Simulated assay, not measured.
Amino acid sequence: MKTISKTKISIGRHVEEIDCTGKFIVPGLFDAHIHLAAIDLSDVDRARGATDKILDNMLRHGITTVRDMGGNAPYLAQYKEDII
Rank of each mutant, 00 (worst) to 15 (best):
N72R: 02
C20A: 15
E16I: 15
I18E: 02
R13G: 13
Q78I: 09
A32S: 14
I54G: 03
G71T: 11
E17V: 15
R48F: 10
E16R: 15
A32M: 04
M58Y: 07
Q78A: 14
D45S: 13
R48M: 11
E17G: 10
P27G: 00
H14I: 06
E16W: 08
G62K: 04
A73I: 12
F30L: 09
D52G: 00
S42T: 15
Y75C: 08
L41E: 04
D43A: 09
H14W: 13
I18G: 07
H61A: 08
V26P: 05
F24A: 07
F24G: 01
G71W: 00
Q78M: 15
M69I: 11
N57C: 05
N72A: 08
A77H: 03
K23Q: 12
K23T: 10
E16V: 14
K53E: 15
N57H: 11
I39L: 09
R67T: 03
T65Y: 02
T21D: 08
P74H: 09
D43C: 01
A37M: 14
K53G: 04
P74W: 00
T21L: 07
T64P: 02
H35G: 10
R60E: 05
R13N: 14
D52K: 14
A38H: 13
E16A: 12
L76T: 03
D68A: 03
T64S: 00
I84Y: 15
R67M: 13
D52R: 11
H33N: 07
Y79I: 01
D82R: 03
D19Y: 04
T65A: 06
G70V: 07
D31V: 01
S42V: 07
N72T: 04
L59M: 12
I83D: 08
G71P: 07
N72L: 04
L41Q: 04
G22C: 03
T51S: 07
D45A: 12
D31I: 01
V26I: 12
T65K: 01
L55F: 10
P74I: 03
I63W: 00
G70Y: 02
P27Y: 00
D40K: 06
L59D: 11
K80E: 03
V15T: 10
H14Q: 14
L41W: 02
D52F: 12
T51Q: 12
H33M: 05
